[in-house]
C-alpha cells in the first residue's frame, strides 16, 4: 500500500462518484417504476422533480470521474519515483500490472460519461423527457463501470510495493520485444503516418459533411470514423508521434508526454483527442432516439455545435501532434 496524497484523492473521489451514481440509480429506478408522463397527478409531478435530482447526482459523479482520469494519469506518472527502474507512468503501471486494466476502464468512462451528460441535456431540454428510460438504463451500465474503476484502482494502489523492481517504457514499448505494445511500436512509421493523416482527414470531412447536410449515413460514418480515428491515433502515438515529440528514434512511450520536460503536451493532446471523438460520436447516438419529435428538435439544435466543436478539437489535436513532425529537428529518414 502506498499512502500517497494523490492516491487518497483518487480513491476518495472515485468512492464519492460511485456513491452519487448509486444514489442516482436508486432514485432513477424509483422514478421509472411509477413514471407516466401523460398523468398530471401530484405523484408524477414529484417524480418529474426527482429527475433533476438524478441528473444532478449523475452529472456530478461523472464529472468527478472525468477529472479523476486526468488525476490518475498525473498520479501514476508522479508515483514512478517510488519504484526502482520506473521512469514514467509505464513503470508505475508495471509495478502492479492490475494498473493496466484501469486504463481501458478509464477510456470507456471518458467516452461514456460525456455522452451521457449530453444525452441528459437533450432529454431535459426536449421538455417531455423522451429518452428518460434509455438514459436511466445507461446509468445502470455506467454504475458498474465506475465500480470497476474504483475496485481496480484500489487493487492497483493497495498492491503497490515500492520494493518491487519494475521495467519501464524502454523495455515495454520497444520495437524488438513481443506483445501488443511492442507490435504497435514496431509498426512501420510511414504507412502508420499515412494512415493517421488519412484517418484525420476522413474524420474531419465526415464531420463537415454532417454539419452541412445532416443525414443518417453521414452521422453513422462520422461515428465510425471517430472510433477508427481513436484507435489509429493511439497506435500512432506509440508508433511515431512519440518519436517526434521525444526526438529519439527508439522512445515509444505514450506516457512520457505527460511530463513537464515535454511541456506536459500530453494533457492537451489527449484532452483534444477525446473531445474530438466524443463530439464525433454524439450525432450517431442522437440518431438512435430521433423517433421522438421533441428529442429530434433538441438534437438538431445541438448537433451543429457538436460538429463544430468536434472539428475544432480535431484540428487542435492534429495541429499539436504535427508541430514536432513538421517543425522539429528530428527526422525519421534512415529509420
Amino acid at each position: 500500500m502506498i499512502l500517497h496524497p494523490g492516491v487518497l484523492a483518487l480513491l476518495g473521489g472515485s468512492a464519492a462518484a460511485l456513491a452519487l451514481l448509486v444514489a442516482a440509480c436508486v432514485v432513477g429506478l424509483q422514478v421509472l417504476r411509477r413514471w407516466d408522463f401523460s398523468s398530471s397527478s401530484a405523484t408524477q409531478l414529484a417524480l418529474e422533480r426527482r429527475t433533476f435530482l438524478v441528473s444532478s447526482l449523475a452529472t456530478v459523479a461523472l464529472a468527478i470521474e472525468i477529472a479523476s482520469s486526468l488525476l490518475f494519469l498525473y498520479t501514476v506518472d508522479d508515483l514512478h519515483r517510488l519504484f526502482v527502474g520506473a521512469m514514467c507512468a509505464t513503470g508505475s503501471l508495471n509495478a502492479n500490472p492490475v494498473g493496466w486494466w484501469v486504463l481501458p476502464v478509464k477510456v470507456l468512462i471518458l467516452l461514456a460519461a460525456p455522452l451521457w451528460i449530453a444525452l441528459n441535456g437533450l432529454d431535459v431540454r426536449a421538455g417531455d423527457f423522451p429518452v428518460i428510460r434509455a438514459k436511466y438504463g445507461a446509468l445502470l451500465v455506467l454504475a458498474p463501470l465506475v465500480a470497476a474503476d474504483l475496485v481496480l484502482q484500489a487493487r492497483y494502489f493497495l498492491g503497490l510495493d515500492p520494493a518491487v523492481i519494475t521495467s519501464c517504457c524502454g523495455s515495454l514499448f520497444s520495437a524488438a520485444g513481443s506483445g501488443v505494445s511492442s507490435e504497435l511500436a514496431g509498426l512501420p512509421v510511414f504507412p502508420t503516418m499515412t494512415a493517421f493523416y488519412a484517418c484525420a482527414a476522413a474524420f474531419m470531412a465526415a464531420m463537415a459533411a454532417c454539419r452541412l447536410r445532416p443525414a443518417a449515413v453521414a452521422r453513422i460514418a462520422t461515428a465510425a470514423l471517430a472510433l477508427t480515428f481513436l484507435a489509429v491515433t493511439l497506435a500512432s502515438m506509440v508508433s511515431f508521434l512519440s518519436l517526434y515529440i521525444y526526438e529519439l528514434p527508439t522512445h515509444h512511450c505514450p506516457f512520457d508526454v505527460l511530463q513537464l520536460q515535454y511541456r506536459a503536451i500530453g494533457y492537451p493532446l489527449y484532452a483534444s483527442l477525446f473531445a474530438a471523438v466524443v463530439f464525433g460520436l454524439l450525432p450517431a447516438l442522437s440518431l438512435v432516439f430521433r423517433g421522438r419529435p421533441s428529442f429530434a428538435a433538441a438534437a438538431d439544435r445541438a448537433e451543429r455545435h457538436w460538429l463544430e466543436a468536434g472539428l475544432a478539437a480535431t484540428i487542435v489535436f492534429v495541429g499539436l501532434a504535427s508541430v514536432p513532425v513538421v517543425f522539429g529537428s528530428f527526422t525519421m529518414r534512415g529509420y
Binding site: 496524497p5 484523492a9 464519492a16 456513491a19 452519487l20 433533476f52
Partner: peptide, 21 residues
C-alpha cells in the same frame, strides 16, 4: 493544486448536490 482540489472540493460538491436540488 489538483490533488488539493480533489481532496476538498469533491467532498463539498458531493455533499451539497442533494440539498441544492
Amino acid at each position: 493544486l489538483f490533488v488539493l482540489g480533489f481532496l476538498t472540493v469533491v467532498p463539498y460538491v458531493a455533499s451539497t448536490v442533494a440539498p441544492s436540488w
